[in-house]
Design a protein around this nucleic acid. Sequence first.
RNA 1: GCCUCAGUGGCUCAGCCGGUAGAGCGAUGCCUUGGUAAGGCAUAGGUCGGGGGUUCGAAUCCCCCCUGAGGCUCCA
Length: 611
Amino acid sequence: MRILLIHSDYIKYKTKSKTKIAEEIDDENKEGEFKNSLVVFTAVEKEDEKNPDSVVENAAIEIADIFSKIGAENVVIYPYAHLSSSLSSPDAAKKILHNIEAHLRADDLNVARVPFGWYKSFEVSCKGHPLSELSRTILPEKTDTQPNEEQHIQKSKFHILNKGRLYKVDEFPYQTSDFEKLVDYELDRTKSSGEEPPHVKLMKEKNLAGYEPSADIGHLRWYPKGKLIRDLLADYVYNLVTERGAMPVETPIMYDLEDEAIRVHAEKFGERQYRMQTKNKELMLRYACCFGAFRILADTFITWKNLPLAIYELSTYSFRLEKSGEVVGLKRLRGFTMPDLHTVCADMEQSMQEFNNQISMCSQTGDDLKLNYEVIMRVTADFLKENREWVFQAQSIIGKPIIIEILPKRKHYWICKMDFAAIDYLGRPMENPTIQIDVESAERFGITYINHEEEGLNPIIIHCSPTGSIERVIGSLLEKTAIKMAEKPPMFPVWISPTQVRVLPIAERHLEFALHLADDLMKQNIRIDVDDRPETVGKKIRNAGNEWVPYVIVVGDKEFESSQLMVNIRESNEKMLMSSDELIDLVHQDTYNMPFRKLPLSLKLSDRVNF
RNA sequence: GCCUCAGUGGCUCAGCCGGUAGAGCGAUGCCUUGGUAAGGCAUAGGUCGGGGGUUCGAAUCCCCCCUGAGGCUCCA
């Protein structure tokens, strides 16, 4: 329900002629005038029909609240269809308006209601003080409160699935603490220690990202090193999915809520959307790439020969209006970047096959990023019943025990999904990759394909994010370093490290040699820089350590003469003597098959700025 | 969104039962010309998150707001 509230000196109206949906009225109600009134222009919407009582209640509370603040004498309820493009049925509207009137009257307010369904002339005089013009959107409570009991009975069941066997969660012999932590979290048993996740501090300390106070909360600024890492990860996912046949696309970030399919899909997301009103349209900012992908697929002629068909987009950005208290560091943001792959499959069999491929793809990202994922599979009871064997083999692809959540009924658009989570420093999961079988959207968005028999059918769509949001990946990498910090020096995987090799010339006379060396390595696609600042070697070593540089070379007279380099290897914390070619090989081994971008910072550290 | 705590030079923090701001790092300059995790000296740098109030006087006490963290809730 949409309402527009005007605190007026007076309002006058006069009925002119009936519409088809007009309510019957007495002569005395054919015209009227009310002094010092809160006029409530009201449009009842389709959505309100789901739970009319709750809308009535919420509207009455809101109106009474404003009424009490402004000191008007009357409330005038004025039916005004033009506030919404999605009106309820006239009967439902009449009933709801009538009930609001009755409800307010029961609160001892003077209430009048202007007739519904008539063409009317009216005149309103707005007082013009700050509270004299307000608008509100009244939402029904989420359908019904009564089925509480039912919901209780319909709780999900959790089991552990391993090697073709289902275990009760308490009877499973846990081998790893990460997995146990995920189980605890899913079962609501995680004890919070009240600490702050270390990645928040690290992202700022390492000059990767920071908060932007002039934006909304949960929107970050990225400094050159962080931006480089984002781009490398973006390249990585791009290669990963295109090598498997997906076609990259790019779609708009905002959508018109007038589009029925968009609106329904968006409504499911509830309050968590950024919306904006332009002159003629109400728009929403996307919270995933689904909207654009589905619209493309709906407009594409697809036959069974094209399937499975995958399109890919990196959403820079997706927007979710998370509650302010829920936004944390890189873990939960209002603006974030999500690789989003949508695969059109002909039928369930094909989807399951494709799902298997995507399990391997998601697991691969764990290896490449050196992150440990724990896995939870969520299925509806019906799906499990029909596809028990397939579900069990899906676990075998993971190769270690997983949690399985069995939902008694389908709640969402998917019937089967798999979430991969890295466990953070505080023992809580950070959800990263995900795969979902969507059985609902194709129909809603009008996506069809032509089968062998030349019939048009709605396909099944698999949503997949092979790494999860880029911000969370970076967050997980930082959390991991914090966990391991006690055992070994923290660092990123070499292919992600902004500086891969740093050269430390001992004295000024070694600078030329150092720059020369850097030039050679740069030509081999290695991100290298030179610490030419007039500091002691000890201090430069320390700085390189603080920046997590994987390889550090000190060059002086000895190196110049022998062309053998003393390389400090962070990973193993040892020093090794090698030639520059051997060092190149070593870095190339570390970064084999991974994307490369040049270092977008000056070669000499003395030229750099600190962010 | 709710409850609790916090916001002081670029960074990390001290000062907080009211009397006009302090350290370390960093930066800049000079000295040191060097061999593996902080060389020395000096200088600059602050509307004490923002607004209002109490007071002769507020970083300090009170109120409102903004931002951050933790918890709750939530994460389709």
